[in-house]
Simulated assay, not measured.
Amino acid sequence: NGEKASEGQPDYRIFAGETSTEIGGGWMRKAKSSGREYVSLTLADPQIGPRRIYANLAPVKGKKGRHVILWNPRD
Rank of each mutant, 00 (worst) to 15 (best):
T19D: 12
R13N: 11
A16H: 09
D75Q: 15
S6E: 04
G2I: 06
M28H: 11
W27I: 04
W27H: 06
H67F: 10
V68P: 08
S20A: 15
R51C: 03
E7H: 02
K61H: 06
T42V: 14
I53N: 04
I23H: 03
Q9C: 03
N72E: 07
R52S: 14
Q9P: 00
K61S: 02
A5S: 12
G65R: 04
P73A: 07
S40Y: 07
G65H: 03
E7L: 09
P50D: 04
R74L: 15
V39T: 04
E22A: 00
K32H: 12
K61Y: 08
W71I: 11
L43G: 13
G35R: 06
R13K: 09
D11F: 00
E37A: 10
L57Q: 00
K4T: 01
N56D: 11
R66N: 09
A58Y: 13
V60E: 08
Y38V: 08
G65K: 06
D75W: 09
R74V: 13
A5H: 01
D75N: 04
R66T: 11
K61V: 08
I14H: 04
R29T: 15
T42Q: 01
Y54D: 11
P73C: 04
D75Y: 08
G24S: 06
G17I: 14
L41T: 03
Y54F: 14
E18F: 13
K4I: 00
A16C: 08
E3G: 11
G17T: 10
G8T: 02
T21C: 08
N1W: 11
L70G: 13
D75H: 01
R66A: 08
R51A: 00
V39K: 04
E7N: 12
Q9T: 07
A5L: 06
Y12T: 06
A55F: 09
K63N: 06
N72C: 12
A44V: 05
I69A: 00
K4Q: 02
P46T: 08
E3C: 07
R29F: 01
S34W: 15
L43E: 08
L41E: 05
G17W: 13
A5F: 05
Q9Y: 04
G62E: 02
R52V: 13
G8M: 13
T19C: 05
L43R: 00
E3K: 05
D75L: 09
G8R: 12
L41Q: 05
G25V: 14
S40W: 14
